[in-house]
Simulated assay, not measured.
Amino acid sequence: MGLFKTNPFGHNLFIKKWLIRILAVLSHQRYKRFNTLEIEGSDIIRNLPDKNVLFVSNHQTYFADVVAMFHVFNASLSGREDSIKNLGYIWQPKLNMYYVAAAETMKKSLLTKIMAYAGSVSVERTWRAEGQDVKRQVKMSDISNIGKALNDGWVITFPQGTTTPWKPLRKGTAHIIKKYKPVVVPVVIDGFRRSFDKKGLRIKKKGILQSMVIKEPLQIDYENESSESIIEKLEYAIEQHPSFLKVISKADLLAYEEENNQRKFKNS
């Protein structure tokens, strides 16, 4: 790889590689020592094509979720079996891997700008800005940029657009799936909201069992399936469909809501 080679967004790949390496070294113990990350589905990662893959996942923190995925996906590609042992896997990271994030969030600090360079496809949120509810049109350039990332490699997205559980999925995700026809891989995570603060930067509690389950790609009829059907399929796949609330006790649901409110208060 040449020193001056760039990706479709103009990011220098040599710089990006070193940023990913450094961030991986700094974050590895958060999933391996202070807490334990249990993984399922490494074999699925290894069998995916190199491009046009869309990972859809539930969301629990701003950054800890996606950083964990960078670890797990790279470890899986290097032959690790449901493990992130031995950090050597990050020496040659997959550089055509991206994640969708709010532009507002990625501009807030030097750290978030570094993380954006490492792989963010930044988009303008249509429903919230600067802590206020808004309603605005989707920017077509944002859709195009996600398509550009898919054309180059893998993209991770959190279609609920919030870390609050069981919220409806954004319909734009179905539009992207129908337009670009990616391989859609569901990922279900748990334990991250208990381990970290809302931003996913500070360890809130140690000794937590975190989990990441990578599921088989979804079967989707890109031409004939409706957006509503795709959204419902995604909700079931990432275990965020409203029907899941029927098997959760009222006490557990209230605990989730209370915890989420406390996290919002601490990070406001």
Rank of each mutant, 00 (worst) to 15 (best):
L169Q: 02
T163P: 10
K171G: 09
K171S: 15
V185H: 07
I177N: 15
G161A: 09
K171P: 03
T162W: 01
T173M: 09
V184A: 10
P168V: 11
V183Y: 12
V185K: 04
W166D: 12
I177R: 12
I176D: 15
Y180R: 02
Y180V: 02
K181Q: 14
I177A: 10
Y180Q: 00
T162S: 01
I176N: 10
T162C: 01
L169P: 06
R170M: 11
P168E: 11
P159A: 01
A174R: 02
P159Y: 00
G161P: 06
V184F: 13
G172Q: 08
T162E: 00
T157N: 12
K171T: 10
T173A: 11
G172Y: 13
L169R: 09
K181F: 15
P186C: 00
P168D: 12
I177E: 05
T164Y: 12
T164F: 05
T164Q: 09
R170Y: 13
T162R: 00
Y180P: 00
K179L: 15
I156N: 11
P182F: 09
T157I: 13
R170T: 05
T157S: 08
T157G: 03
K181L: 06
V185M: 09
P165G: 07
T162M: 04
K167M: 08
P168H: 02
G172D: 12
L169C: 05
K181Y: 09
Y180K: 01
K178S: 08
T163H: 03
I177P: 07
R170G: 11
G161V: 06
A174Y: 01
H175M: 12
I176F: 15
K179W: 00
K171V: 10
W166C: 10
K181S: 13
P168S: 06
P186G: 04
L169V: 07
I156R: 10
P165L: 15
K178N: 02
K167P: 07
K179P: 12
P186R: 05
P186K: 03
Q160N: 02
K167R: 11
H175W: 09
L169A: 09
L169M: 05
P182I: 12
G161L: 11
L169G: 06
K178A: 06
P159V: 05
L169E: 05
I177Q: 02
K171R: 06
I177G: 09
G172E: 14
P182G: 07
T173H: 09
A174D: 04
V185Y: 12
P186W: 00
I176C: 13
I176R: 14
T173D: 05
G161Q: 04
K179R: 10
I156Q: 15
K179E: 06
H175P: 07
P165E: 11
K178G: 00
P159L: 05
I156P: 12
K179H: 03
Q160Y: 00
F158W: 14
K167Y: 06
P168A: 10
I156S: 11
W166N: 03
I156K: 08
T164S: 08
G161I: 01
G172P: 13
I176G: 14
I177M: 08
L169W: 03
P182N: 13
P159Q: 03
H175S: 07
V185G: 08
T164H: 00
I156A: 13
Q160V: 00
T164K: 10
H175F: 13
Q160C: 00
Q160R: 03
Q160L: 03
W166S: 07
K167L: 04
T157L: 14
K178H: 08
L169S: 06
